[in-house]
Design a binder for these strands. Sequence first.
DNA 1: CACTCCCGCCAATTA
DNA 2: TAATTGGCGGGAGTG
Length: 892
Amino acid sequence: ENIFDRSRMAPKTPIKNEPIDLSKQKGCTPERNPITPVKIIDRPQPDPWTPTANLKMLVSAASPDMRDREKKKELFRPIENSEQSDTPDPLQYDIVDDSTVDEFEKQRPSRKQKSLGLLCQKFLARYPNYPLSTEKTTISLDEVASILGVERRRIYDIVNVLESLHLVSRVAKNQYCWHGRHNLSQTLKMLQEAGELQYGELMTSQHKEQDLEYKSGEQKKETTPDSQDRPLLEFSEPDCTSASANSRKDKSLRIMSQKFVMLFLVSKTKIVTLDIAAKILIEETQDTVDHSKFKTKVRRLYDIANVLTSLGLIKKVHVTEERGRKPAFKWIGPLEFPGKTDELRGHSQTSDPLPGTQRGACAQYQTSVTGKQRFTRHTSFNSAQPCEAARRKVSSEPNSPRQERQACIVNSDENCSKMINLAAVCRQKIEEDTGEMILNSAKNSNITLPFSLLPVPGDSDFCVNPLPQAVFPVVQADVPSFSLPISITSQASHPSTPAASKTENGKPTLVPNQPFLCFPSSSLFMLCGGLQENNLSETLPTAGDVGNRSAEAQAAVPPAFCQKRSFHKCSSPSAPVDDEEPAAKKQTLEQSDLPLSLVVPKKPSESPKAEPSPGSGCSSAVHLETNHLDLASPAAAEAANKESTKPLDCQEQEKQSQNKDTDEPPPGNEHIAKENANQPFQPQYLYVQPTAGLSSFNFLFSANQAPGAINLATNQLPSLSVPCVMVPSAALASFPFVCSPSFTSPLSPVPDGSFSAAVSTNFSMSSLASATPVFISTTAVVTPKVSPAPSVDPQQPAHPTLHLSPVLTRSCSAVKLDSPVCVGHPVTLLKLQQPSSAPLTPKSIRPAHHEAFFKTPGSLGDPVAWKKNEGNQTRNASSVQRRLEISSTSPD
DNA sequence: CACTCCCGCCAATTA
DNA sequence: TAATTGGCGGGAGTG
């Protein structure tokens, strides 16, 4: 009866009692104790207006059982009606109205009407998105359940998800506190950071796994740590406060929800398919992905997705993959978050202290970057989680098996499993379509993802997060074998002592600054300390000695790889460069906003640092690191593709140099390389976002430019001295670029300052054809190989540069540029799948796909090849060389 | 038939 | 011990 009333509901029943109503009403019952309110208690009080009150009252009055019964009876959706009547919220109504229309229907509510998503909307409608801080809204589960006419179980589903996002917190039994969205951005930010770490790592690990089984052991180690990190997710809770709530263990639903959200935040595409998410989320690692388990996971994900959808954070979409269409969800919530994480950071600062096996890894990565800040943040999370865990345990007293279990699982196991899954996924994805699956991209290019995410903010914060993740993964990704070592090295190195890590290879010169930054395509750029490449080469040798370890890895590792390496490289031999690198990075960052000119100038100067625009130094550094990572990862992915890169670099460089002159004009023809797979490893380039002013072109400047190259540039354009690569923005978009800040000696001829100006000038993009990417290398410009010159490096003369590595020749057809200076980093332009530039057929090449996913230029080349190349090239690089290759035709 | 995901049993945890 | 939470998966509704 009540139910029916609802529609009519007149305001009449003032009596209604129910606290529920009150609570529901926006107001909340501030006063209520955290203590679990008694459901029953409330009844007596009537609510004036809520028509539903009657219902509520009834419900409340009734014992739980009664409630249930009533609910059932009510089924008919009285709830909705009632609520509607009660609250002004429109959302709910729709259905209601309809239902009203047909009573029958009401009675027999369709499944949709009962959906969790709808229920969640109703639930949310009850509370203000941004409640006044002063007033605390408490939510009584019983009330809500009765009001909404659903079982309490369903409310748990909603509340758990909301709790994971900190929209609510558990205050006491049966009682939750409504926080609204005030902290949502912060929470998301945290999740993003955590996600980057976790998944980035995962990605890495995955790659490793994929790549090398043998490495697995190492990987696992890494992963493990990662996994531990995972707890991070939980971390937020502590912040949240409602400590009491914390006591509860982490429930899978909560954790799953956070992880799920993290996936979105980490993914470039912002789209996550359910199956991928399920795989990733399957706890505990294991490969044993029972089918049933998978199914269950998917069910849960639907539950979560429904709630998130109601929150307006995601929306359902379908991803069409090779196999067919898959259900997926797209993140439509905020992507950037104001940096509030500071708080967290503060907590986290302890990071160093944290032992972290897991963290350690992260930290190391981070540290390498310098991103203490970043690090800290991460750490904070980590630390926080542990704390929570501790708390929980404590609170629980004896212990809660579950808690432990969950915690453990979540943390480590899951991570591992996730990683595994991710790896699998990545593979699949790669195989499949690059574009579609975000996850894939994410997974595959874990690194990338983070970057992508990162780009936006540009804040230091932003930097921090991405870097670590990116870095690691990259390494691994790049070369499996290498990666391992790399990773290891990275880990080994202290986070705190980023430099150290670098040093490993070479000298620690720049410790703090990292050579490379990865930027998401959108934003931009990258940098690297390319010059150092030389160093790299040097390092390589060392590596050779060691052979095995990280050193080797580093050496082997393509530029992309190693940020660290780069650093090392830089530090070691040519150390000077290192400093530059950071600057470059910074520049790049800045550049993103700014037009190319900025970047260029700086580079030329060699001391990028100087350039640096104010500000972002730190962040830039971080980014750099990330970039490296990205690169690496992609590389790894490409590993399959492998090869391609090395030679290219040289060529590219040469081309670039050549092109430079032409660049300005629509370079396109000349240099256009459709595929741009750039893998600028060692050679470093600064990438300027197209947006900046360049119409659609992206510029890559090589940090490394060989002096000679510079000179070349000078020919026509003094400013140009800096080698650059221009790529169509579109192409780049997806790819991360790495730039090396430092140019070593490049430009003697031109004063630093001058360069900048000049450079900018040179580049005037006016002429540049939008479509075609142009590469300009100081040394040489690479011309697009539109024409098929597949395997060859035709262009290049014989510079030793080629030496190298067979770089991309492979199918990919990516064009590679070698910067002379570079240590041999070949830069591979990832294939741009852009249609326009066609010559290259990225498509043809599978690897290409991978590349695409990763988008990281670096990714393309095989690590090994790169390594080889690097070594060779670097030296060669000194001489100007350029190379373009169209991989598509002939792989090696 | 596949996708969704509601429903509610029942175990774990808490009070 | 009773109540609260929440994992889990059967199986129904939808398209």
